[in-house]
């Protein structure tokens, strides 16, 4: 095998988002000596986890060339489900974790079949799913605040435990990033997702099971979004279904910031995780500096616009 040295830049191996992350951390440490305190570092890590898990699933779907905008509604559905199943008794804890995740995977499977089998546009299909889920959940709980009467310690521990001092959700997030990096980078499934995102017709003609593989990306995204919802339920113990955050757009922001191509075929789960951390660091520093939420949004918007401009330039540069 012949390779020509010098035709690859460091950006081919380390996505620029990691460089941005290092710069952001150094800058943050210089701006505030509170930033690197252990408690603050853990706060930064924890802040991004819920959105981060959602973003990981959306990354895989987008590498396949599709959008999953139903994830926010799946988060809400899963959080409500987890609390309704009633994790009050230790025996119910497993069900309160597993059933919402299965429901999320089922919703994702429906999304996937709509897109890959029926040929629906994924933006439209998953926004449709979002309306359906929000409507269904609000109807089921009559628009009321949902809280479990008393929550078993083992269910609270899902979000609250701190093995070796690190919050369990952070550990789970890191494990998911590692697992998905392996799946996408080293397995036949991952290769096929990249191929489908690169050229769906070429993939079909090459004999790739496009419907099965593509549907699996949506099922994965649904399951991960649902798991995020379960974490919220575990963390706060109650959910206001009308007020629960809309996670799909912050997550999509991280996916794009991490360099996943909006047209599919390019992206890495670990880069999305780095983007989640960049956003968390920026938000954290601005909170330390006492900038208000509108300013934080503004800065995030500028960072995102800069990232999109950079990636567009880079792709144009390397297109031929």
């Amino acid at each position: 095998m012949s390779t020509r040295p010098g035709t690859r830049s460091i950006a081919d191996f380390v996505s620029p988002i990691w460089i941005v992350l290092v710069v952001a951390i150094v800058a943050a440490a210089l701006i505030s000596d509170r930033f690197l305190s252990p408690n603050n570092v853990l706060a930064v890590l924890q802040q991004g986890v819920i959105t981060g898990i959602v973003a990981l699933g959306m990354t895989v779907v987008l590498i396949g060339g599709q959008f999953d905008l139903s994830t926010g509604a799946i988060v809400m559905m899963a959080a409500v489900m987890a609390l309704l199943i009633g994790p009050s008794h230790p025996a119910g804890v497993a069900a309160a974790i597993v059933l919402p995740v299965l429901a999320g995977a089922t919703v994702g499977t429906v999304n996937g079949l709509a897109v890959y089998k029926a040929g629906a546009n994924s933006i439209v299909a998953t926004i449709g799913m979002q309306f359906f889920l929000v409507g269904a959940v609000l109807a089921a709980v009559s628009g009321q605040h949902v809280r479990a009467d008393d929550i078993a310690a083992s269910f609270s521990a899902l979000a609250g435990a701190r093995p070796l001092g690190i919050p369990l959700p952070v550990v789970i997030f890191a494990a998911l990033v590692a697992a998905l990096s392996v799946v996408m980078g080293k397995t036949v499934f991952g290769r096929h997702v990249y191929a489908i995102g690169g050229d769906v017709e070429a993939s079909r003609r090459a004999g790739i099971a496009v419907v099965r593989t593509g549907t699996a990306t949506f099922a994965l995204s649904g399951a991960l979004a649902a798991f995020s919802g379960v974490l919220i339920a575990s963390l706060v113990g109650h959910v206001d279904p009308t007020a629960i955050g809309r996670y799909e757009f912050p997550a999509l922001t991280a996916v794009v910031l991490g360099g996943t191509s909006l047209t599919g075929g390019v992206g890495r789960p670990a880069d999305t995780a780095a983007a989640i951390l960049v956003i968390a660091v920026i938000t954290n520093v601005m909170t330390i500096l006492d900038y208000q939420y509108p300013v934080q949004l503004l800065v995030q918007g500028i960072v995102l616009a800069g990232a999109v401009a950079y990636y567009s330039w880079r792709r144009a540069e390397f297109a031929r």
């Binding site: 990249y194 995102g197 690169g198 050229d199 070429a202 993939s203 075929g265």
Partner: peptide, 10 residues
């Protein structure tokens, strides 16, 4: 195929 049916990103 005339289009070659390659995935350009790979």
């Amino acid at each position: 195929y005339q289009t070659l049916a390659l995935a350009d990103n790979l």
